[in-house]
């Protein structure tokens, strides 16, 4: 039934003004991401400019929510963003804790977090130890998340469950509850995937996590955010996700503070659709900068 319900959201027909508003909202929720071994300072600077001015021909567009990079590039990103007033409001998210596998000693992972925060990261995207979780040592996973949360200081924490490795909805739900109970505070996130494992985010997985967020909110009053990541490339998909959030958690979650898209190519598709609405015709992908 979870898959059936998730599929229902994709049958909503979003047209005209609703489409325009949805595309803009989705753009403002993007965590513009580059997580490759070959990432260079130049690429990250370019990404930051894109984050602040997604489409130079349309100044009315919002900035994206954040840029998401490896710890070594946090400093570069923060410095580039801080060059403009608009850029100062864009967060720098850093993956940490031995991303993407998390197969490192806890001290190393915590050090990774502290360094990223010191370098200026506003948000930390951690990975849980799937090995421990699947082995049934959930208490240890809980303690680790709590320790990472403490190391984050003022930075918001996003807990990546890597749902593609958990496989079942039961485990996704259990991991969601575990993460939220391990001391996450308002506007911290749970996140589906690293983007390095297939399958990454799916509608069904996201629905199960949204339901967990809803139940956690009613139990504790704390609003946790949701970030599906990986595999969301088209505007249409993004609108489906927004429909799902709106009809599962309601209006309060329809903000970048509580919902994000972890994506690299989604932004350009959103821009292409927005340009099409503005100009009446489709542009070439080459009309938009890659980063």
């Amino acid at each position: 039934m979870a898959d059936r319900r998730a599929a229902e959201f994709t049958t909503r027909s979003i047209k005209t003004s609703a489409k325009e508003a949805g595309l803009r909202l989705a753009l403002s929720m993007v965590d513009l991401t580059t997580l490759e071994g070959k990432d260079s300072p130049e690429k990250v600077r370019s990404l930051c400019r894109k984050a602040v001015t997604p489409d130079p021909t349309d100044p009315s567009l919002p900035t994206v929510a954040a840029v998401c990079v490896y710890p070594e590039l946090v400093k570069v990103a923060r410095a580039e963003l801080d060059k403009s007033e608009a850029g100062k409001k864009v967060s720098v998210a850093s993956v940490a804790t031995g991303f993407p596998s998390g197969q490192y000693p806890l001290e190393v992972r915590l050090y990774d977090v502290r360094r990223a925060v010191e370098a200026g990261a506003n948000e930390i995207d951690m990975v849980i130890s799937r090995g421990l979780f699947l082995a049934g040592q959930r208490g240890k996973v809980f303690d680790e998340i709590a320790a990472v949360k403490e190391s984050c200081g003022d930075a918001h924490l996003k807990v990546i469950l890597e749902t593609g490795e958990l496989e079942t909805y039961d485990l996704v739900r259990a991991a969601s509850d575990l993460a939220m109970n391990a001391g996450l505070t308002e506007h911290d996130f749970i996140k589906t995937s690293t983007g390095k494992v297939n399958p990454a985010a799916t509608m069904g997985v996201t629905l199960v996590m949204l339901e967990a967020i809803r139940d956690h909110y009613f139990k504790t009053g704390v609003k946790i955010g949701m970030k599906p990541a990986g595999g969301i490339r088209s505007s249409k998909q993004a609108l489906h996700y927004l429909v799902m959030v709106k009809e599962t958690l309601g209006d309060d979650w329809m903000t970048p503070e509580l919902f994000r898209f972890g994506a690299s190519s989604l932004a350009n598709d959103l821009l292409m659709q927005l340009a099409r609405r503005r100009t009446g015709h489709y542009m070439s992908p080459d009309d938009f900068s890659e980063a």
């Binding site: 909503r12 979003i14 047209k15 003004s17 927004l242 709106k246 958690l249 309601g250």
Partner: peptide
Amino acid sequence: KADARSLRFGESWDYAPA
């Protein structure tokens, strides 16, 4: 208690007629 914690299903992003 649930009064303070309610989900708002309002018109924040209303679907245009389709």
